[in-house]
C-alpha cells in the first residue's frame, strides 16, 4: 500500500504520480520514435512510415477490444484464429457469391458468433477465460483450415481491396480505421456506462454485482465485440494480402496482449486506458521496424521483444509498490 499523494508536485493541482501513470509509456513511445528517426537511415522515409502504419493497424485494431477484455479481468486467446478464419470466410463467400458486402458481413458475423460463444461460456458457465478461449482458439483455427482445405483463398474482386490497400487523402485505409478504433473505443471506455461497468467488473467483480452492474451481460458484450473487431482486423489483413490465409495470425493473440500490458494495462483487471494501448502498440511496432531496418536477425528479435515485455511488467510491478 502506498501513501496518499496529492497536489504537492511542481505546482498546485499537479499530481506527479498520476501524470506518470497516465503518460509515461506514451512519452516512451515518442522517445523511441525520435531516437529511431535520428539514428536509423530511411526510418522517416514515406515508404517506411507507411509500412510502420500498416504494421500498427492489425494489432492496434484488435488491441482496442482486447483492452476491454483485460480491463474486465479476462483475456481472449482466440483472436489470432478469428483473424485467420475471418479472412478465409470473406474470401470463400466473395468467391462463391461475387458479393463483397456478403463476404465481409459473413466474416464479421463469424467473429461475432465466436465472441458470443466465448462470452457466454465465460460469463454464464463460469469457465476460466484462459481455458475457454484456448479451446475456441483451436476450434476456430481448425475451422479456418477446414473451410479453406488448408490453402489460401484468393480474392479477385477489386472492390474488396479497398479495406487493405485503399487510400483516403494519401493515408492508407487500415491506418484510418485504426485511428477511428482508438478514438471510438477510448470514448466508449470513458464516457459510457458500458465502459465504466467494464472497469468496475475488473476492479472488483463482487462489488460491481452488488452495486447493480449486470456483470454477465457486460462480459458477453465485451467478448462479442472483441470477436467482431477481431474479424474486422482479419478482413483488412485479407484485403491487404488479396487472399484469406488459414495459417496467418499464429501467436497474434500474444502480440496483442503484450502490446496492451507493455503500455500499462493491468493483467489482473481494473486498470487500463486507450493511451496505454496506443503506447504499447507503437512501442512494439517501432522497435520491430527499427530492428528490421538494422537487419537484426529474426531469432534475436524474439529475444529482444520478450526482454522488453518482461522489463515493462517488472517496472509496472515496482510502480505499484
Amino acid at each position: 500500500m502506498s501513501q496518499v499523494k496529492t497536489a504537492k508536485g511542481f505546482w498546485p493541482g499537479f499530481n506527479q504520480r498520476k501524470f506518470l501513470d497516465d503518460w509515461v509509456m506514451l512519452l516512451a513511445a515518442l522517445s523511441i520514435f525520435v531516437l529511431s528517426a535520428l539514428f536509423i537511415d530511411n526510418f522517416l522515409s514515406p515508404l517506411n512510415m507507411r509500412g510502420l502504419g500498416l504494421a500498427i493497424s492489425t494489432v492496434g485494431i484488435a488491441a482496442c477490444t482486447m483492452l476491454f477484455c483485460l480491463a474486465s479481468g479476462h483475456f481472449d486467446l482466440s483472436v489470432g484464429s478469428v483473424i485467420a478464419c475471418a479472412g478465409v470466410v470473406a474470401g470463400i463467400v466473395i468467391r462463391d457469391t461475387d458479393s463483397v458486402v456478403l463476404g465481409v458481413s459473413a466474416a464479421l458475423a463469424m467473429g461475432l458468433v465466436v465472441g458470443l460463444i466465448n462470452g457466454i461460456v465465460i460469463a454464464k458457465l463460469r469457465i476460466n477465460a484462459l481455458i475457454a478461449t484456448l479451446a475456441t482458439m483451436q476450434i476456430v483455427r481448425g475451422l479456418a483450415y477446414i473451410f479453406s482445405s488448408g490453402k489460401a483463398v484468393g480474392v479477385m474482386d477489386e472492390r474488396f481491396f479497398v479495406f487493405g490497400n485503399g487510400q483516403l487523402l494519401g493515408v492508407p485505409v487500415p491506418i484510418i480505421i485504426t485511428v477511428l478504433c482508438f478514438v471510438f473505443f477510448g470514448w466508449l471506455l470513458n464516457y459510457t456506462t458500458y465502459g465504466r461497468n467494464t472497469m468496475a467488473i475488473g476492479g472488483n467483480q463482487e462489488a460491481a454485482l452488488l452495486a447493480g452492474v449486470n456483470v454477465d451481460r457486460t462480459k458477453i458484450i465485451i467478448f462479442a465485440v472483441h470477436g467482431l473487431i477481431g474479424a474486422l482486423a482479419g478482413v483488412i489483413l485479407a484485403s491487404r494480402m488479396t487472399s484469406g490465409q488459414p495459417m496467418i495470425g499464429q501467436g497474434f493473440e500474444l502480440t496483442v496482449i503484450s502490446a496492451c500490458v507493455l503500455g500499462g494495462v493491468s493483467l489482473s483487471g481494473g486498470i487500463g486506458m486507450i493511451r496505454h494501448v496506443i503506447a504499447g502498440v507503437l512501442i512494439l511496432a517501432i522497435i520491430e521496424n527499427a530492428m528490421n531496418l538494422k537487419n537484426i536477425d529474426t531469432f534475436y528479435q524474439y529475444v529482444i521483444r520478450g526482454s522488453i515485455l518482461l522489463l515493462a511488467v517488472i517496472i509496472d510491478r515496482m510502480k505499484q509498490r
Binding site: T193, Y194, M199, G203, N204, A207, A208, A211, G212, G270
Partner: peptide, 27 residues
C-alpha cells in the same frame, strides 16, 4: 471484497449504481 472497487475513484464508486438512470439513452 464486496463494497468498494478499490482501483476506481471515489466519484466512480459513488456514481456506479445510479448513473444508468442519469445517462442519455441509458448508456
Amino acid at each position: 471484497k464486496e463494497g468498494i472497487i478499490p482501483l476506481s475513484s471515489v466519484a466512480e464508486n459513488i456514481n456506479i449504481s445510479a448513473r444508468g438512470a442519469h445517462s442519455s439513452f441509458g448508456w
